[in-house]
Design a protein around this nucleic acid. Structure first.
Lengths: 226, 226
DNA sequence: AATATTTGTTAATATTTTTTAAACGATATA
DNA sequence: TATATCGTTTAAAAAATATTAACAAATATT
């Protein structure tokens, strides 16, 4: 179910909007002010859209908009009681996608939400969401944080093998047997070279997860699920 | 330069909107009524956005919206003097992406236009202007960007097979089995030759999508939907 | 039957990947 | 702390693989 953050200091409006969104099968996350909105966005980086009131104590809607835009292109609808041009321009310049003036019809708001999500869905895909390594075995392609990696066959095979047995340590000989086959009689240092290159291509993820076990071999550290 | 169709029977408003759009480096195409709007859209299938007044003689804005949606997902902004909920819902149901109530600030309208185009740009790609490969199995003909390709049987079969299993890698032997049949005992390099010739005929599309997976085989890269 | 087209084969060339080797850095343990 | 062991990195050689072009064989067309 798609999540939507609704930030407004007026509880009544918040509730009203959320009720309508829930009826349309959205999951809502309520924030009472800008600070909370930003915190909740950090906590739920997979929200599909944000509805943010401009006039809030502390961090206002414009500022929320600007800060979110530093890292994400999630659609944002700004709410306001004022309808002057100046405000609207400021809103768009802050990176808002929509501008809804109070009083508004909740039903129309929901329609706007749906239209905006539909429109953004295509673009979104590479947003912040995906993190870590994903392997598409049909395509023989591995992805890091959603972006395809340009791996050679051996690099790809090592990544697959270690990922398939996440957390387990393999000696170089075990890896040679598993990936090169039992009839390979080359140097065991060969594995090192490939691991080194794979590690490089995996960047920070490689350093963090493709671990050396001193005196033994290599392993893929599982992703921490805190 | 991005093209925008502006449809409004009031010449004054049309001119006003167009002037602002031109200042923001858009090319504008003016329509005096719904019928003209639809005709112009057919004529210019590459427009980036449409701005359509609801109240027009003959075919009204809603109808324009609905008809355009039959073939295209180009962003549409509806203009109206009335601001009642009923109208807005009808608009969204007709497939409009935005709803702007008169009187409106042209500057804000331009901002909305820019936001909407930015948002849609990713999704748009499947507009009317055909791009990529299409296969007419009844006719045994493949098209590239709408133009028929002059393929030999084997080239056609390879294209079909890889396209049918887009993204998946096949070894040469798998392709030989699937296309030549299990009783073919020829050289696996044969596949290479045909792929090479097919790639040439596909031009830039071939280079970009008919990929070699070193050490494994070939695959057809899906069209990026970013 | 003669000609054109498509298909399959081959071999030379180009490209990419893998392996090796060696220098350097880090780690363990005596 | 010294020293031997182990891991990393780099560059370059070697091997594997892919591409290309030219040609021969098969098939279709005139």
């Amino acid at each position: 179910m798609r999540k939507i953050i609704v930030a407004d200091d007026e509880a009544l409006i918040r509730r009203l909007v959320c009720d309508f969104l829930k009826k349309s099968d959205f999951e809502t996350i309520q924030a009472e002010d800008g600070e909370q909105a930003l915190a909740l966005f950090k906590e739920h980086p997979d929200v599909s859209l944000m509805i943010v009131d401009i006039m809030m104590p502390g961090i206002d809607g414009w500022e929320v908009c600007r800060r979110v835009r530093e890292t994400s292109s999630v659609p944002i609808i700004l709410l306001t009681a004022r309808g002057e041009e100046f405000d609207q321009l400021t809103g768009f310049e802050a990176g808002a996608d929509e501008y809804v003036t109070k009083p508004f019809s909740p039903a129309v708001l929901v329609k706007r939400v749906e239209a905006l999500i539909k429109l953004s869905e295509g673009k979104q895909r590479d947003g912040l969401q995906e993190t870590g390594v994903r392997i598409d075995r049909d395509a023989y392609v591995a992805y890091l944080d959603g972006k395809p990696l340009d791996l050679t066959l051996k690099e790809y095979e090592i990544l697959c093998y270690l990922s398939d047995h996440e957390g387990r340590v393999f000696t170089r000989d075990q890896l040679l047997d598993a990936i090169w086959g039992f009839d390979f009689y080359g140097n065991a240092r060969t594995v090192d070279s490939h691991v080194a290159r794979l590690r490089q291509k995996l960047g920070a993820y490689g350093d963090a997860h493709l671990k050396t076990v001193y005196g033994t071999g290599y392993k893929m550290e599982p992703v921490q699920k805190v």
